[in-house]
C-alpha cells in the first residue's frame, strides 16, 4: 500500500497573517511557516495505518517555495518514508486549477494507492483541491471524511452533511480528504528527527513533471486576486447583564453565530 499525503505549508494561525496588497498573495515572510495542522492529521491517518501494516509506504508531497523543506522534513521525522517537493518559481501564486494539475502530475510520477489530504487549508482555502486532483487522475474522491478505514482494496468512512452522516466507500486507487474530527498528529520522536535527513527527498521542477506552463496552461482561466481588504479592528464584545434570562440570551447569541 502506497499512501501519498498532500501537505501544504501555511502561515501559523497563532500569528498575524498578512496579504501583500500589491500581488494579493499571502505574505509568507511575515509569519512563521508551519505544516497546515489539518495536513498533519492527514499524515497521522497514513502513519497509524503504517503502524499496523509495516509494509505500507508513506510519502509526503508538497508544492511550494524552498521554505517547504522544513515542513516536509517534519513529516519525515514523524514517520513518512520519503518526501517529494515540487519547487518551481513559475508556480508562485498558483490557483486551485494550476495546483491540482501539478499535484496530479506529481502523483502520477510517484505512483499511489491512496492519496490523503486535509479538507481545506487555513490560508487560501478553497476546499476543492483534493476533488480536483482526483478528477484529473480519474480516480474517485471522497472528501470531508470524519472517520477513515483503509483496507487492501478499499477506503471507507463517514462524511458529515450537516443533517446527518453518510457512510461512503471507494475502490482504490482513490483520493480522500479529512476533517478536524480525525485525531491530532503524533509528536515527531527524537530518533525520527535524527533519521529524517537520511530518508529520500526528491525535488521536482515543472520540467521534471513534463509541464510547460506556456503550453499546459495556455488558454486556461486562472483566478487572480484583484483587491484585498484589511480585517476590521476587533469590535468590543457584547456584554449580557443577567436580569433573570442571561442563559437564554447567551444561548441565542451562540445559536445566531452557529456555534451551537
Amino acid at each position: 500500500m502506497k499512501i501519498v499525503v498532500l501537505v501544504k505549508q501555511v502561515p501559523d494561525t497563532y500569528g498575524e497573517r498578512i496579504l501583500d496588497p500589491a500581488t494579493g498573495l499571502v505574505d509568507r515572510s511575515g509569519s512563521d511557516a508551519v505544516i497546515d495542522e489539518i495536513d498533519e492529521r492527514a499524515l497521522e491517518v497514513a502513519l497509524s495505518y503504517k503502524d499496523a501494516h509495516k509494509d505500507a509506504e508513506v510519502v509526503v508531497l508538497s508544492m511550494g517555495s524552498a521554505a517547504v523543506t522544513v515542513g516536509l522534513r517534519k513529516g519525515l521525522a514523524m514517520g513518512a518514508d520519503s518526501a517529494v517537493h515540487v519547487l518551481d518559481s513559475a508556480l508562485r501564486g498558483a490557483d486551485v486549477g494550476w495546483t491540482s494539475t501539478v499535484l496530479a502530475a506529481a502523483l502520477t510520477a510517484t505512483g499511489f494507492d491512496l492519496v490523503i489530504a486535509g479538507n481545506e487549508s487555513t490560508d487560501g482555502g478553497g476546499g476543492v483541491v483534493p476533488a480536483m486532483v482526483a478528477e484529473r487522475l480519474g480516480v474517485p474522491p471522497i472528501t470531508y471524511l470524519e472517520s477513515v478505514q483503509i483496507s487492501d482494496d478499499e477506503v471507507a468512512g463517514e462524511r458529515g452533511t450537516g443533517q446527518g452522516k453518510l457512510r461512503v466507500h471507494a475502490a482504490l486507487p482513490a483520493v480522500i480528504s479529512i476533517t478536524e474530527r480525525l485525531p491530532e498528529a503524533r509528536f515527531p520522536k527524537f530518533k525520527g528527527i535524527m533519521s529524517a535527513k537520511k530518508k529520500p527527498f526528491t525535488v521536482l521542477s515543472l520540467e521534471d513533471l513534463g509541464i510547460d506552463p506556456a503550453v499546459t496552461f495556455a488558454g486556461v482561466g486562472r483566478s487572480v486576486v484583484l483587491q484585498t481588504t484589511k480585517r476590521p479592528a476587533r469590535a468590543s464584545g457584547k456584554k449580557i447583564v443577567d436580569e433573570g434570562n442571561a442563559g437564554v440570551e447567551l444561548a441565542d447569541f451562540l445559536v445566531a453565530g452557529h456555534l451551537i
Binding site: 522534513r73 521525522a77 509528536f187 515527531p188 527524537f190 535524527m194 535527513k197
Partner: peptide, 15 residues
Amino acid sequence: TEEQESLVDAVRDFA
C-alpha cells in the same frame, strides 16, 4: 544544526 532546531521544535510542541 537543522536537527537541533527540529529537536527543540519537537520539545516545544510537547512542553
